[in-house]
Amino acid sequence: MRKQEKVDKTIVVPGDLLSDDAAKAAEGTYTENGKVYSLIYGLADEREKIRVIPLSGKYLPTIGDVVIGMVSDISFSNWKVDINSPYEALMHISEYPRRIESSEMAKIMRVGDLAIFKVVDVDQSMKIELAPREGQLRVLQSGRVVEISYTKVPRVIGRAGSMISLLKDKLDVNIFVGKNGRIWINGNAADEELAIKAIKRIEKEAHTSGLTDRITKFLEEEKHGVYEKR
């Protein structure tokens, strides 16, 4: 049996009392009669302010998020884009760096194409507008995209990008993580496979501590396995 992993944050459920100080309430909480309660099922993070980190749920975009979207439809002047959220997003033809005609839209992005976008607007009714990231549209032509719960994205990135650097360091792949839980992996085919395995494992064990060490070990073991087979 593996040694018991310690939980560094407490698991809470909706309605759990978190604090008597309403000023400490942050995301994932609500206040009632000056007390702070959990709004969702997740991990309570009590440094400075109290917030609850969700363990599950649907991605809701915020302005500035960089996401990987899939074109689901083309209308007269917009690409409709699925961003792994309950709401469909739109990228207007005018957001494309160059002036183009409506008839040319399918040449740039067809239905089913994946690309990296930036969320430029989200309004009250959850109408979402996208633009190419950094002014240049990046349509993903090679590599693979995996989908995980958006709640696990910070774990895949790691503290100050430690987890992502680890993956890039050990494997011959380039990795791009979208805020919406879609991850693009591009590189050597065998390493792509391994990166996906590692990411799936990170997703599954996201709530445990000592994960970076375990992933390091996992990658080393798997790498050796791959070489032996060759």
Binding site: G15, L39, I40, Y41, G42, S56, G57, K58, T151
Partner: peptide
């Protein structure tokens, strides 16, 4: 509902 991550005031 809680498992689905739906925000709720309580169970």
């Amino acid at each position: 509902l809680a498992d689905a991550g739906v925000p709720m005031r309580g169970l």
